[in-house]
Design a protein around this nucleic acid. Structure first.
Lengths: 212, 212
DNA sequence: CGGATCGTGACACGACCATGACATGGCGCG
DNA sequence: CGCGCCATGTCATGGTCGTGTCACGATCCG
C-alpha cells in the first residue's frame, strides 16, 4: 500500500518520501521536514499514536492519519493525539490527495510557487510581491516590468525590448517611459533607490534584475 | 456551553440549530430534521432520556449524548434509550466533531468534504455555499465563478480565462460581463463589498480568490 | 568642461473598475 | 397556456488611480 500511494502521489506532482517505520519517519522529519505527514497507525515498533504525539511535540507539521474502517476509537484517539484529519483504509489516492490539499489549505501552507531574492518574494501565480513579508502595492505596468526583468535574472534588457514585452500593444513613444516606470518600481521595492539592489541600471544599454 | 458549541461547529462548516429545551428540540425535529442530534441530559422540562426515546420513536436520526464525566449510569441508560454515542462533559468541539463524523459515517450519512475559508464554506459535491453556517443563495453563474476561482486559491484569473471557463459556450462578448458577475457574487458573500475578502480585484489583470 | 545619459518630481489625461439601472429571456408556478 | 419572478447580459456613470509626458537636476564619460 505504501508503494502504491507513493507512486500515485508522485504521478500527481508531489514529492513523496516513504519510510517503513515510525523511527525512520521521525528521523527523516528532523532531516527534511515535509509539508504534510501521512501516518498509518499500524506500524512496526512504536505505534502510530506515539509517533503522532512526538511529531506534534516537535513542530506543527500537519498530520493525516490512516485508520482501519469503522474503528471509531482510533479516530478520536488520533485526533486527540494531534492529527489534523484521518482517512479510512482502504484509501483511494484521489481521496487522500483531496484531504491533503484540504489540510494544507487549512493550515495555510498551500505550496505556492514563490521566488525569493533576498528580502523580495515574487508569486507569479498570485501576482503578489512581498518585501520582508509585507505585500508591496505595485501598479500593473510596474508589476509586468518586474516580472519581465526577474524572469531572466542577470540578463540586461534594453529599453526597446522592454517596450515591446511590457507594453504589449506595440508602442513607439519615448523610451524614457521605461525610465519612469523603473523609477516608480524602485521607489516601492528598493530600500535606497539611489543604490538599487534589485533593478540595476546598465548605463547605455538598459536594466538588469539582480542579485544573481 | 450551547452557544460555544454552536459557534465552534458553525465555523467548521456545519449548519447548527441550537434550542433551549427538549420541547423546542422535538418541535424543531419535526419541522427540519437534522443529520445528527447532540443532546444534553441536563434539560429544563422533560429530561434527556425521555427526549431521546421520543426522537428514536419518531425516526432514525443519530443521537450523540452529552453526559457528566464518569457517570456510568447515564451512559448505560443513554445508550439503552437509543443514543448512538456519548461524549463526556466538558466537551472539546474537536472531539465532538470527530464523534459526529464517526456516527454519520456509521449510518452512511457522511457529509461531503467541505472547504473552509474564514466564514465561508464550500461544498463542491453538494454545490452548497454557507456563510457563518447560513446557506448562501447563489445563482448558477455566480456559483460557477466562485468554484472556478476558489479551485485555485491565491491564483489570479484573467477575465478571458474566466469567460472561457465559467461561460463554457465560447463567449466573445464584453469582458465587463465578468465584472458584473463578480459584483453580484460579492454582494452575497462579502461582508463589505467595498473591502472584499474572498474575491479580490487585481487591477489590470483580473480577479483572485483569497484570503491567501 | 561639455554632452549624453539617467534620476526625480509634478501634473493632467485617460484607463480601469465598482455600482446601479434596465431590458431580455428562461423557467417555474399557478 | 399565461403570468411573474429571477438570472443574466448590457449600458451609463462616477471615482480612483495608473500612466505618459515634460522639465529640471544629478551623474557619468570622454
Amino acid at each position: 500500500m505504501r508503494e502504491g500511494l507513493e507512486l500515485a502521489l508522485s504521478r500527481h506532482g508531489h514529492r513523496v518520501r516513504a519510510v517503513e517505520s515510525g523511527e525512520q519517519g521521525l528521523e527523516r522529519l528532523r532531516a527534511d521536514p515535509p509539508d504534510v505527514v501521512v501516518l498509518d497507525l499500524m506500524l512496526p515498533g512504536i505505534d502510530g499514536f506515539e509517533v503522532c504525539r512526538r511529531i506534534r511535540a516537535a513542530g506543527d507539521v500537519p498530520i493525516i492519519m490512516l485508520t482501519a474502517r469503522g474503528d471509531d476509537f482510533d479516530v478520536v484517539a488520533g485526533l486527540e493525539a494531534g492529527a489534523d484529519d484521518y482517512v479510512v483504509k482502504p484509501v483511494q489516492p484521489r481521496v487522500l490527495e483531496a484531504r491533503m490539499r484540504a489540510v494544507l489549505r487549512r493550515v495555510g501552507r498551500e505550496q505556492a510557487e514563490l521566488e525569493r531574492y533576498r528580502d523580495l518574494t515574487i508569486d507569479r501565480a498570485g501576482l503578489v510581491v512581498t518585501k520582508r513579508g509585507e505585500p508591496v502595492g505595485l501598479a500593473p505596468t510596474e508589476l509586468r516590468m518586474l516580472l519581465e526583468l526577474s524572469g531572466t535574472p542577470g540578463r540586461v534588457h534594453s529599453r526597446q525590448q522592454l517596450l515591446e514585452s511590457v507594453w504589449e500593444h506595440g508602442y513607439f513613444g519615448d523610451s524614457r517611459l521605461v525610465d519612469a516606470c523603473v523609477q516608480r518600481l524602485r521607489a516601492k521595492i528598493e530600500d535606497d533607490s539611489a543604490a538599487p539592489v534589485y533593478v540595476q541600471t546598465v548605463r547605455g544599454f538598459g536594466y538588469r534584475f539582480g542579485p544573481v
